[in-house]
Design a protein around this nucleic acid. Structure first.
Lengths: 228, 228
DNA sequence: AAGTGGTCTAGACCACGCA
DNA sequence: GCGTGGTCTAGACCACTTC
């Protein structure tokens, strides 16, 4: 072997799997045996195997040992940041316009259920621009009880960014889908009604308290990409 | 603290961040100091902090120390498996039809460039069904040189599944987007032309050898979801 | 130059889950 | 039971990068 370290060991294990030295479904030697063979500590061997298990290449179970996955399920990871930095990373100038901000709007049933009947919901609609072209239309419901007393000016800092900087470290769900542009979305984004939009839906919670529910509709051409 | 172990330590660090004991941007004590405070070995402390760094909550740099991230960038992970198991996991019956299989089709320029001028490309078109309804239309270019001599029967086992079981452990790229259904896609999926489709594009490589290029167009209603 | 995180070691105990 | 992976410890050396 060329280098030292757990990544080198991982690469060698991966090689044996690729050349079918250890075919799919096979039971591979246990950590202790492999550590002896590779001349490393068991902790180092464990680190390499754990990493491959997380990558979906190995399946590990106590007592049953470690097997090469029959149908590898690979994790694809996307970095979810704030819209401004995402736009800027693509080399564009970011701007945003607060289209609607209202405390009086009645939430539809699915929104109400996420907030579990909590009152005081703030409705916000924001348009994000990249180089002055419509980029993303954001519709968001927000638990107003979590806002500081002089409420932030969401015309200056976008809700998106304010939430990440002030109510970070939430948990929740995220979903991607494709949807036809509604008449309103079409008008705001400057596209034809029914155009295919890439939609991101987020529901976030902070320690069991519902925080926000958002629908982000991207202008056509948007791609979410990652290496596998 | 209630339990023992690095996950308990991680939770406590997370708590301090959430209550702004350690506000965004703050430098937190180094591993050795925290290990002493928590009464654990430095390796255990390191494991907890490393995990939070991977989650985008902390930023660690040698010599500069560990800081609470100012604009946390959270990784969202999706499990990419084979279409059959994905459909079955949703409680549907999976089936597939091989629509086209041809060795004579001329690849468009973008496809040719991915394969770097390699000859012998196989073109495949497959329709996946869930409970007999169109689910996914798959267009795929495949490096035919990687196939065994009696070529597999892609009418029996879908290309998708054959590749994962026989040419697994590839690297490559994956991208999600929304696109209007072409006339052909619309006909095959049984939807209106121009309908918003969720499209997954994959380009895979096995040890620098191009393997396949695929475009998977999902029928309307498809959602890709994960917990954050 | 010096302090930080990154990694490795050798050994130990434990939790799980098959027999 | 008992073998497996999961974790922890105490100590050490190293790589990086900022000072």
């Amino acid at each position: 072997m060329s280098g030292q370290g757990w990544e080198t060991i991982r690469a060698e294990v991966m090689r044996r799997i690729r050349v079918r030295d250890w075919p799919p479904g096979a039971l591979i030697p246990n950590e202790a045996a492999l550590a002896t063979e590779f001349g490393c500590a068991r902790a180092t061997m464990s680190r390499a195997l754990r990493d491959l298990a997380q990558a979906g290449v190995l399946e590990r179970r106590r007592r049953a040992g470690t097997r090469v996955a029959l149908l590898p399920v690979r994790p694809a990871t996307f970095q979810i940041g704030i819209t401004r930095t995402e736009v800027e990373a693509l080399g564009h100038v970011h701007a945003h316009r607060l289209l609607v901000q209202s405390r009086d709007r009645t939430p539809p049933p699915d929104v109400a259920s996420h907030f579990g009947g909590i009152g005081g919901l703030l409705y916000l609609e924001t348009l994000h621009l990249a180089d002055d072209s419509p980029w993303l239309h954001e519709v968001r419901w927000l638990n107003a009880g979590l806002l500081p007393d002089p409420a932030p000016d969401f015309g200056a800092v976008s809700v998106n960014e304010w939430l990440v900087t002030h109510l970070a470290y939430t948990s929740g769900e995220i979903a991607f889908s494709a949807a036809p542009a509604s008449a309103h979305e079409a008008a705001v984004l400057g596209v034809a009604s029914g155009a295919a939009l890439f939609v991101v839906e987020r529901a976030t919670v902070l320690a069991a308290v519902p925080v926000t529910l958002a629908r982000l509709a991207h202008a056509p051409g948007y791609r979410m990409q990652t290496v596998l």
